[in-house]
Amino acid sequence: MPNDASLRITPQPVRRQVEERLREAIISGRFMPGDHLSDRLLCDLFGVSRGVIREAVRLLEAEGLIDVVPNRGPFVAYLSPAEASQVYEVRAVLEALAGQGFAERASEDEIAELRAVFEEIAAARPGLDRVALLGLKRRFYDVLLRGCRNAYVARMLDQVLNRNTQLRATTLSDPERLPRTVTEIRRIVEAIERRDAEGTWQACRDHVAQAARVALRILNQQASEKAEAARGRLPAPAAD
């Protein structure tokens, strides 16, 4: 379990800060799927009251990041392969809309800003800290969502990306994924720089499809390994 003093909360608005810090701790992998988020743990970690913690947990449960199990409490949510596939389907459409809108409506300064963040991603090496790399991807999407000039797409995609960050962390375990990600995002940026809305739409769809392929392969493998382990723990059937 994490024990990071940087997560502790300073004054107002406390509930909002706890919500943001807890979300960050989950999507960055400080808390992993299945971890128990007890009141005592979170109160000690963030230095706030139980009521504030429970309100933040309720909000993140609504986002799908936390599961509250009756009589056991909150846990970091798992994503099954079937759930992950649905998340990627939604993300693909929303991200394509955001990319298309950005190509059509972003300012030249925003396009330059997007290019600058991409260059930082392209310069990253496979050994880069996972949290740092996810932070770069988050900055890329922050610019994309701002420049697409569609508040509804931005709001919905932002929520999907929060859920999807756990999956992005999963794909980073594939050593071949980072260079392919760079190639895919370069295609998006270059289409935007040409103001090619249709090309940006397709590049975004293709990027999400490739990410989904890697994540689902890993998740299916993990699910298979868990099933095998569970079968290994079952008692042998009684002899006739």
Results as ranks from 00 to 15, higher is better:
Ser80Asp: 11
His36Thr: 02
Arg21Thr: 08
Ala62Ser: 10
Arg23Tyr: 04
Leu94Thr: 01
Leu234Thr: 10
Val117Arg: 04
Glu61Phe: 00
Pro179Phe: 10
Gly47Asn: 10
Ala223Glu: 12
Pro74Trp: 08
Leu134Ile: 13
Leu145Lys: 01
Arg168His: 11
Arg30Leu: 15
Arg115Gln: 14
Asp174Arg: 07
Glu120Cys: 01
Arg205Ala: 09
Leu234Gly: 02
Ile111Pro: 00
Ala227Lys: 07
Glu24Lys: 10
Gly51Lys: 05
Ile121Met: 14
Asp240Glu: 13
Ala197Pro: 07
Gly34Trp: 13
Thr200Asp: 04
Gln17Pro: 06
Ile192Glu: 03
Arg195Lys: 14
Asp109Gly: 03
Gly47Leu: 11
Leu97Phe: 08
Met1Ser: 12
Gln86Cys: 04
Ala238Met: 08
Asp174Ile: 03
Gln159Met: 03
Gly101Ile: 09
Leu157Val: 04
Arg105Thr: 07
Glu63Ala: 06
Ser224Leu: 12
Val87Trp: 06
Glu198Arg: 10
Gln222Asp: 09
Ser38Trp: 05
Val189Leu: 07
Val68Gly: 08
Glu120Met: 12
Phe75Lys: 01
Ile9Asp: 05
Leu42Ile: 14
Arg91Lys: 09
Pro235Thr: 03
Ala112Gln: 11
Glu108His: 10
Cys43Asp: 01
Asp67Lys: 09
Arg168Ser: 08
Gln100Asn: 06
Glu176Cys: 00
Val93Tyr: 03
Pro11Ile: 08
Phe75Leu: 07
Leu167Val: 04
Leu59Arg: 15
Pro11Tyr: 03
Leu59Cys: 02
Ala169Leu: 09
Cys204Arg: 02
